[in-house]
Simulated assay, not measured.
Amino acid sequence: MRGREWARPVRPARREVLSALPEVEQGRPPLLFVPGFGHGAWAFAEHWLGHAAGRGFPAYALSLRGHGGSEPAPEATLRAYTHDVTQVAAGLPRQAVLVGHGAGALVVRHALARYPARAAVLAAPVLGDWATLGTALRRNPGGTLPAFVGAGLRLSRRQLFSRELPDAEARRYAARIGHAGRRAQWQLLTHRDPEPAVGDPPVLVVGSPDDRVVPPAALTRAARRHGGAPLLFPGMGHDLMLDVRWREPIDAILDWLEKEHPPA
Rank of each mutant, 00 (worst) to 15 (best):
117 A>G: 09
122 L>K: 04
122 L>M: 05
123 A>F: 08
125 P>S: 08
125 P>K: 02
126 V>K: 14
126 V>Q: 15
128 G>P: 12
128 G>Q: 06
129 D>S: 12
129 D>Y: 15
130 W>V: 11
131 A>Q: 12
131 A>S: 15
131 A>P: 12
133 L>N: 13
133 L>P: 15
134 G>A: 10
135 T>Q: 07
136 A>S: 14
136 A>L: 14
137 L>K: 10
138 R>E: 10
139 R>Q: 09
139 R>S: 13
141 P>K: 01
142 G>K: 02
142 G>T: 02
143 G>S: 06
145 L>I: 11
146 P>T: 02
149 V>R: 07
150 G>S: 09
150 G>H: 08
153 L>T: 13
153 L>E: 13
154 R>S: 12
158 R>C: 11
160 L>G: 14
161 F>A: 04
161 F>R: 00
163 R>Q: 06
164 E>G: 02
166 P>E: 01
167 D>H: 13
168 A>V: 06
168 A>D: 11
168 A>N: 10
168 A>T: 07
169 E>I: 01
169 E>C: 07
170 A>P: 09
171 R>A: 14
171 R>S: 12
171 R>H: 12
172 R>V: 04
172 R>E: 11
173 Y>E: 06
174 A>G: 12
175 A>P: 15
176 R>I: 07
176 R>H: 14
179 H>I: 02
179 H>W: 10
181 G>D: 07
181 G>I: 01
182 R>E: 09
182 R>F: 09
187 Q>E: 10
188 L>W: 08
189 L>R: 02
190 T>S: 12
190 T>C: 12
191 H>P: 08
191 H>C: 06
192 R>M: 04
192 R>W: 07
194 P>N: 02
195 E>D: 08
196 P>S: 01
197 A>G: 07
198 V>D: 03
199 G>V: 02
200 D>Y: 07
200 D>E: 11
200 D>W: 05
200 D>C: 07
202 P>L: 01
203 V>L: 01
203 V>A: 04
203 V>R: 00
204 L>T: 09
204 L>N: 12
206 V>H: 08
206 V>E: 06
207 G>C: 04
208 S>L: 01
208 S>H: 04
209 P>Y: 06
209 P>W: 02
210 D>V: 00
210 D>S: 02
211 D>G: 08
211 D>A: 03
211 D>W: 04
211 D>M: 01
212 R>W: 08
212 R>H: 09
212 R>V: 02
213 V>N: 13
213 V>P: 12
213 V>I: 08
215 P>Q: 00
216 P>H: 02
216 P>C: 06
218 A>H: 07
219 L>R: 06
220 T>W: 10
220 T>Q: 14
220 T>F: 14
221 R>F: 11
222 A>S: 05
225 R>H: 15
226 H>Q: 05
226 H>G: 07
228 G>Y: 03
229 A>M: 11
230 P>H: 05
232 L>Y: 13
234 P>R: 02
236 M>T: 11
236 M>S: 14
236 M>D: 13
238 H>K: 08
239 D>G: 15
239 D>P: 13
240 L>N: 11
241 M>A: 11
241 M>G: 13
242 L>F: 06
243 D>R: 03
245 R>T: 10
248 E>P: 15
248 E>C: 14
248 E>S: 15
249 P>H: 09
249 P>A: 08
251 D>P: 13
252 A>M: 08
253 I>H: 14
255 D>T: 10
256 W>Y: 15
